[in-house]
Amino acid sequence: MKLKKLLVSFITLSIFITGCSTINRKEVVSDKAKQQQTMTKVQNDVNEIMSKDYEYVLKNMGTPYSTTYWIEKDQINNTKTIDELNHTVNVGLVYPKYTADNELEGSALYIELDKNKVIEVQTYEFSSYNEEELEDDNVALIIDKYSDDAKLDLQDIESMKLDTYKGKSTDDIYNKLNCIDPNLAAYDMVSKSKSIEVYMLRDSESNKKNSNSVLTVFINNNKINDIKIINSSVLLDIAKDYLLN
């Protein structure tokens, strides 16, 4: 898989989305200035990170804007958790460039990894694409992770009458959740009609930042087919079962 597919897949996700397992945040740099400095070094010399692994990239460049996993048809049964995908499938990381005033510059660094090693790095416009290139017959699922941070309380979601949202527009639940974007989303790339949006939940009663539960919205043709709280350990299996059947 080449970098053009990284750009294409990222934009495909942007078209799908409206606005997991319990994923542990890796050690990352917190200084935005250092992150941008590292990005500039990489843009000038890609050998800074070529052949390095996922953990190395995060440690030196910080948390990406998004992480995209492409799961091809012959890889469907190879993994059980989201974290395992770093070692078994193609992964794309997107790092937008910012100005000194912390404003989006308009370009982004796109990094592709294969089996946990950086294989290609390029700079593109942050949102440019060619609609004719939005196809890939080998990819069955695309998973996009935006954040590890839980912004919704488990207890609040448990008190909601989730069944009342079945059959309704995805906008209804999105508005109910105060327009908070999902942490993770998965997409069926065969029929292109199904998707899943996942919200990590924090357990306020036990003072844990993230619980082992996630709110999962099952979508078909922009309508909510099902919505429920599930254990994050079975998320990938449930996503594959729903999206591919």
Rank of each mutant, 00 (worst) to 15 (best):
L162D: 05
D148K: 11
D31R: 10
V57P: 10
I71S: 07
I82H: 05
N60V: 10
S147I: 09
Y54C: 04
L85I: 09
D149Y: 15
L85Q: 14
A150T: 13
Q35R: 11
L109C: 11
S159K: 14
K115Q: 10
Q36N: 15
V118H: 15
I49H: 00
E84L: 11
K32T: 01
K73D: 02
D136E: 04
E103M: 08
Y69F: 15
I119G: 15
Q43K: 04
T88F: 03
L104F: 15
Q35V: 07
S66G: 04
E158R: 08
T63L: 15
G92Y: 07
Q43T: 14
K117I: 06
T40C: 01
T67P: 02
Y65N: 09
E84F: 13
T79C: 14
T170C: 01
Y54N: 04
I111V: 12
D74I: 00
I157T: 09
V89K: 02
N78Y: 00
S128N: 15
K34D: 07
V57N: 11
N130M: 14
K32I: 09
T40W: 01
S147M: 14
V89F: 04
G167M: 08
N86G: 00
D149A: 07
E72L: 02
D114L: 07
T170S: 04
L113K: 03
T123C: 02
D171E: 12
M50N: 04
T164G: 02
M61T: 03
E135C: 08
D101E: 04
S147T: 02
K80F: 10
T164K: 13
V91D: 12
K52T: 03
D153K: 05
L152M: 05
